[in-house]
Simulated assay, not measured.
Amino acid sequence: MHALKLVGMILAGLAALPAVAADDGTQDCAAWKNSLKREPAWYSEKCLGHAYGALSPKDAQAAALPKNLGDTTYQFNMRGTGTGADSLQSFVLPNAGTATIIGPQTGNLYGLEYDNVAGRIYAVSDLFGFGELNKTTGVFTSTVTITGTAAGQSVTGLAFQTPSSPYYLSTSDGTDSQIYTFNPTTGVATLVGNTGTPLMIDIAINASGQMYGHDIGTDSIYSINTSTGVATLIGATGVAANFAQGIEFDKSTGVLYAWIYEGGGVNRFATINLTTGAATTVATPLAGEYEGATTPVSLQSFSVD
């Protein structure tokens, strides 16, 4: 067969094939929006149109800063790139923007809580490993694997009132969120109940034993019944949150803090109004996704406007 005739036949055949939509990443971006997991390395550039960390973080609102310094706080950055990547950090409340980098930890941790009696930071990994974060090196060591959670649920948060009170987990599959108690020695988890929200990304308990949660599907704060797991809406944070992040009480002052991550390295450290749910930025940490834990060892008192 003549070569030109053969080429013509091939081209004609290709022209007859159905058109294929351009790979603009739309499907991937939609699938990862409001993800429970760490932001993928490609997400920022492909879905937000800029390289990781290229956007300037939101400016801290200086007028909202507490009048006095609070307790020492730890934050874990699970981002894999940039200054402070994959590191445990510490700062004195509310100065998250001037945190000291302690050391690296290559795993993904989706819940932190501080044991004020033993002076230990506990955490839960994406593999349901429960263990301790070393405050000197930043290394996480799992001591037990949590079992008993529903299939398809990912761990999103860890909270307890005191080291001798019940330990709670929040989990989600992107559609339903659940609250569990679990035994920190055996790892066995027991279902408390469904929250009624889709993406409860973290939970926190105050000194009185009241639980609160942040849902990134509704971008709202909820109070949670620790006997039933049912979440009651308080109000919207006012921030469009995506991917892993945390909330934590300073039990000395009763202030609820939130590490709110918007994507592409843009994040803020904020206080949460427990009457309205609104978030007020008080500091801007290094670009990253953060979970955190406070050490309630002092009795400072301050107000937040």
Rank of each mutant, 00 (worst) to 15 (best):
N194K: 15
F182P: 01
T181F: 03
A159M: 14
Y167Q: 02
Y212M: 08
G174C: 07
P163T: 09
L199W: 06
G213C: 07
P166S: 09
N206P: 10
Y168W: 11
V192N: 00
L158R: 06
G217E: 08
D176K: 15
V192L: 06
Q178A: 13
F160I: 01
T195R: 05
G187N: 01
G217T: 09
T197A: 04
P184L: 05
L158C: 14
S177P: 03
M200I: 12
Q210F: 09
P166V: 03
Y180E: 01
L158K: 09
M200P: 00
L191A: 14
Y180V: 02
T185P: 02
G217A: 10
G187M: 03
F160N: 04
D173M: 06
L199Y: 13
S172W: 08
I201L: 09
S172L: 12
I205A: 06
I203W: 04
T190E: 06
L191Y: 05
S154H: 13
T171V: 11
H214G: 02
T186V: 14
A207D: 15
Y180C: 05
G187K: 01
L191E: 11
S154Y: 15
V188W: 04
M211K: 04
G193C: 13
P163R: 05
P166E: 05
H214P: 04
V192Y: 01
S177M: 00
I203G: 01
T185C: 00
S165K: 14
N206V: 04
T175Y: 12
S170E: 03
N206D: 15
S177R: 02
T186P: 12
T171M: 08
L158P: 12
G157T: 06
A159H: 13
L169H: 10
N206S: 07
Q178R: 15
Y212Q: 03
I201H: 06
Y168A: 00
G196E: 07
Q210G: 00
Y168F: 15
Y180N: 05
Y212I: 00
T190N: 14
S177V: 01
A204P: 08
A159Y: 11
T186R: 13
P163A: 11
V155H: 02
N206L: 08
V155C: 06
G209N: 10
S208P: 03
A207E: 14
A159V: 12
G213T: 02
